[in-house]
Computed example of a mutant assay.
Amino acid sequence: MRTPTGRQLRFGAELRKLRERAGLNATEAGQLLGIKQAQVSNMEAGRVGMSADRVRQIACHYDCSDTPLIQALSEMASQRTRGWWEQSRDLVPSSLLDLAQLEHHAHSLRDSTTARIPGLLQTREYALEIFRQAVIELSPPDIEHRLSFRIKRQAILFHEDEPTPYKAIIHEAALRMKVGGSTVARQQLQHLLDMSDRDHITLHAITFDAGAYPGSGQSIHYAHGPVPQLDTVYLDQAHGLLFLDAEAQLHKYRTLFSRIEAIALPPEKTQDLIHNVMREL
């Protein structure tokens, strides 16, 4: 049996939350649903698929009256098509596959970064230099796989019909860092300006003058689901990606983003800052 994807694990976790809110253990839930306790465990571990009707039936047995959440979970169960990222299953870490799947299904995305341009906005040349400087040195083939994967992830911002709404808050340090040298840095800044002209993309900058602010020590990424309960935070750490979805964690990072955005420059002044940095290169 193939290891469940991040999305399948999340779906199972949400079923477990529904059961726990109903005050049921797995054995009691199995009796209500007419299945064995082991089958309940497999559902909550993301190891078995189910229909939208089955999700609604489970929600009914668990006395869940949150219609938007039930509808979102039903749609989640129905979306079984494997995406483009499956072609890279043996070429990049599994966490990157989960990230691409999460971004693909997100209703909107938010990033806050301090030392690098967000991956979804990186040029090929900028990203190449980032991968070349990885703490654990990557082989040329691995670099090419990571680079190709990152560029493919960016396609969600270019869909003609429904591009994913995206907001990025970038610290001035990232804008001024000459990753790959002046030419690459200048091309990257121009790319930011070009992307910021798109209606679904909003850029904010935080200047050095803003001083210390909440969350300044890490890159934070937030994927909005169809309902707030299905939002996800992911943190890019030295040992890999960390995905967070507990209610308290989501509340914490929603509040954090609000505070960060409150001290950031508006889009127009952000573009002015980028132009100034380009002139100084």
Rank of each mutant, 00 (worst) to 15 (best):
G119Y: 01
Q57L: 13
R150N: 10
N276K: 15
L244P: 03
T183N: 12
V92R: 03
R254I: 09
N276H: 14
L281F: 13
A248I: 10
S108M: 08
T67P: 00
Q249V: 00
A185R: 13
H105G: 05
W84P: 07
Y126A: 05
L189Y: 06
S216F: 13
H251M: 08
V55G: 02
R21S: 10
D98I: 08
D90F: 09
P163S: 09
V277R: 05
L230S: 01
N25A: 02
A38R: 12
I220Y: 08
Y166H: 14
K152V: 05
T202Y: 07
M1N: 11
Q71L: 10
P68S: 04
Q31H: 14
A72N: 05
A106G: 07
A45P: 01
I35Y: 10
A115F: 09
A238K: 11
Q249D: 15
A264Q: 10
A155Y: 11
L69Y: 02
R146L: 09
I151K: 09
L265Y: 02
T114D: 05
I117T: 11
P228Q: 10
A13Q: 13
D53F: 04
A168N: 04
R47V: 02
T232K: 02
L203K: 09
A100N: 08
S182N: 13
L203M: 09
Q187Y: 10
Y222P: 04
D231K: 05
E268I: 15
S196V: 11
I220F: 09
Q79G: 08
R110K: 14
Q229M: 12
H224Y: 14
S74L: 01
A210W: 01
Q101L: 12
E172I: 08
A52C: 05
P165Y: 08
H159N: 15
R47H: 10
S258K: 14
R186F: 12
Q187L: 14
E103N: 10
S139I: 07
S95G: 05
E137I: 07
E20P: 01
T113V: 13
Q188P: 00
A223G: 09
L18I: 06
G119N: 01
F158Y: 15
T27M: 11
L273V: 11
L96D: 06
D66P: 04
T123M: 09
R124D: 12
H171A: 04
F11I: 02
G83W: 00
D66M: 04
L189W: 09
I170Q: 01
Q133D: 13
I35G: 07
R47G: 02
K252M: 12
I274F: 00
M195F: 12
S41F: 04
D66N: 13
L99P: 00
D142G: 08
A248Q: 12
L102I: 08
L250R: 02
F11Q: 01
D111M: 07
K17W: 05
S258F: 05
E144G: 01
